[in-house]
């Protein structure tokens, strides 16, 4: 399912199509398509984004800042960072490992394995939360054992982290698998012939080759980890100052009719989204450049 989120290397193609009579529309058609599609864009994407910042500042800077330095907000920031700090490296190691097995070796059931890795994308976030309640909740499989040993997973931080790992599970693997498949294994095999061991190959040959795809996957994982709502909401229990992430804090404030505060915290997340998009575009630009450089090298 990751088709829509993989690294794209396309540049601007408009000139190619606009310069030829056969691939050009009449100005009337062109401007109609532009007007309709850009209005749709403004209505559905641009306006909600602007609304977040306008609503956040509706009651002035003082209210805005007060909402951000509120102790509950700060503890939500901490928990959100924690969820991301745990899930990014875990899924990074998994992604590299899965891509190595799938791209560098041939085995039966490979396509099925790729489909399984995609599963978390097709599962509703609510169900992602539910499955951990079924395993670790008071009524769940391990519930009695966990209660006996006084370990809390559901309605506590570990549950939030696990749900976050689940929803961000495929991003890095899905980015790396096609990339490493396309690169083949000649460079790595050459390194083996030259006497390198597995870790040396990974560190000096493979990782430099996949760094942009890897970074791209990390950015997507991080954005989703910090912004996840549905899955985390099911396992959180909404204990203020304890099991609230930033998106859940937004919900609580909103449901208490503290709209300015809710939008102030939401604006933090919106800025995070914008930073994500900027880095993402920078990575795409760098990846396209290094791809072009590789193409230019005469063989």
């Amino acid at each position: 399912m990751a088709g829509a989120t993989t690294l794209k290397l396309g540049g601007d193609h408009a000139a190619r199509f606009e310069s030829r009579a056969a691939t050009r529309e009449t100005p009337l058609v062109k401007w109609t398509i532009l007007a309709i599609s850009l209005s749709f864009f403004a209505l559905f994407l641009l306006m909600p984004l602007i609304a977040v910042f306008v609503e956040a500042l509706r009651k002035g800077w003082d209210t805005y800042l007060a909402a951000l330095i509120d102790p509950d907000a700060l503890s939500a920031v901490k928990l959100t960072l924690l969820a991301a700090i745990v899930s990014v490296p875990l899924n990074l190691v998994f992604g590299v490992s899965a891509a190595w097995a799938i791209a560098k070796f041939e085995f039966r059931g490979k396509h099925f394995l790729i489909t399984l890795i995609d599963l978390p994308f097709s599962v509703s976030p609510v169900i992602a939360g539910l499955i951990y309640v079924l395993v670790f909740g008071a009524q769940g499989w391990l519930g009695p054992w966990l209660a006996e040993h006084d370990i809390r997973i559901i309605f506590a931080v570990p549950g939030i982290v696990m749900a976050t790992v689940f929803v961000t599970f495929p991003f890095i693997a899905r980015e790396l698998i096609p990339l490493m498949q396309a690169q083949g294994r000649e460079e790595e095999e050459a390194a083996v012939v030259l006497g390198a061991n597995g870790w040396q190959i990974l560190w000096h040959v493979t990782l430099p080759n996949i760094k942009w795809g890897l970074l791209y996957g990390v950015i997507l994982t991080n954005a989703r980890a910090m912004g996840e709502f549905g899955a985390v909401s099911v396992v959180s229990g909404h204990i203020r100052g304890e099991t609230n992430t930033l998106p859940l804090h937004v919900e609580i404030l909103y449901n208490e009719y503290q709209f300015a505060g809710a939008f102030a915290v939401a604006s933090l997340l919106a800025m995070l989204a914008l930073v994500t998009l900027v880095i993402k575009n920078w990575v795409e630009y760098q990846a396209a450049r290094s791809y072009r450089d590789q193409q230019d090298i005469p063989s």
Binding site: A223, G227, P247, E251, A262, L269, A273, L277, K280
Partner: peptide, 19 residues
């Protein structure tokens, strides 16, 4: 415009919802 097309991937759903 091209960069902002991905906004729904990057913007947390709760933020989109209240906006």
């Amino acid at each position: 415009v091209d960069a902002l097309i991905d906004l729904p991937f990057a913007l947390p759903t709760a933020v989109a919802g209240i906006a």
